[in-house]
């Protein structure tokens, strides 16, 4: 179910990356911030919207958290991983082209 069209948003890309382990909302915000060395700070409303859409697309699913855990946790699905791999290829193309062209230009 990998969507053919276009680029993932930065938020979606990092949320998917962070969900290779089960995390709840706040955990995702913290992990994304640390993965990006503090650069990407997801706001709670934006994160919630992204999670809802990705659940609908089947890119992530709700994970049953540890017993007694009230907070809802999420984890990436096989479809989500496929989307992530597709995005990685796209990003590699962007980087390769950028380096090749800018690399020859004096800045």
């Amino acid at each position: 179910m990998a969507e053919a069209n276009g680029a993932l948003t930065e938020a979606v890309y990092y949320i998917l990356l962070s969900l290779t382990e089960p995390l709840h909302g706040y955990g995702i915000m913290q992990k994304v911030e640390s993965l990006s060395h503090g650069r990407v700070r997801l706001a709670a409303g934006t994160l919630y919207g992204a999670i809802s859409t990705m659940l609908e697309h089947g890119w992530i699913i709700g994970a049953s958290g540890e017993a007694g855990g009230r907070k809802k946790e999420y984890i990436i699905t096989a479809a989500g991983k496929a989307v992530l791999r597709g995005e990685l290829e796209r990003l590699e193309e962007l980087i390769a082209n950028g380096k090749q062209i800018l690399g020859g230009i004096e800045t």
Binding site: A11, R41, L42, A44, T46
Partner: peptide, 15 residues
């Protein structure tokens, strides 16, 4: 920590 509800233009536009 910081508190914002939206961190991208798409969600700001949506609101």
């Amino acid at each position: 920590g910081e508190f914002d509800l939206y961190s991208d233009n798409a969600s700001r536009l949506h609101h």
